[in-house]
Design a protein around this nucleic acid. Structure first.
Length: 150
DNA sequence: GCCAACGTTGGC
DNA sequence: GCCAACGTTGGC
């Protein structure tokens, strides 16, 4: 069982949207490193922080759980989608996503507060210039953040 | 809206 | 396969 942090723009999919849907594919990832995490490393039962990015209050907004292993991201085949990829085919999909299910909503834990704790200084999220939308979370970091959310 | 940082593209 | 140019991310 592993831990992750997954970024979503709440204008597109917020923690409330996931709560309403129950579960959803993590579509739209178009970065190879993040794709590889989903395709090669994430397993059903893994837990993740649901992070709101590119918004007024960036931070951890809730928890979710991986509920389906990686499969082809349907949006890559849809010419109407902003995530359409003309180089992807059904035989050779380029982009994959897991499904996640809603676990719980938490208080909004702002990135600024995360930065204030030396225990979390190694998190990829907090590194300068970080842009990866899916990153692993060390068990000790997970426990520490869960403590902050109590 | 700014801008630093980074990934991708494409000419050579 | 190098690398400059370009596009995107994302906090501020």
């Amino acid at each position: 069982m592993a831990y992750w942090l997954m970024k979503s723009e709440p204008d597109e999919v917020s923690i409330d949207d996931l709560a309403a849907a129950g579960s959803a594919p993590w579509f739209g990832v178009r970065n190879y490193q993040a794709r590889n995490f989903m395709r090669d490393a994430m397993q059903v039962g893994d837990q993740a922080f649901f992070y709101h990015s590119s918004c007024a209050q960036p931070g951890i907004a809730g928890l979710c759980t991986v509920c389906a292993p990686a499969h082809a991201d349907a949006t890559q085949f849809d010419p109407e989608s902003p995530y359409f990829d003309p180089k992807a085919t059904a035989e050779k999909p380029r982009w994959f996503c897991v499904d996640v299910k809603f676990t719980k909503k938490t208080r909004l834990l702002p990135i600024g507060e995360l930065r204030g704790h030396p225990e979390l200084a190694a998190m990829p999220l907090l590194q300068r210039g970080n842009r990866l939308s899916i990153t692993p979370v060390a068990p000790a970091e997970w426990r520490f953040i869960m403590g902050l959310l109590k």
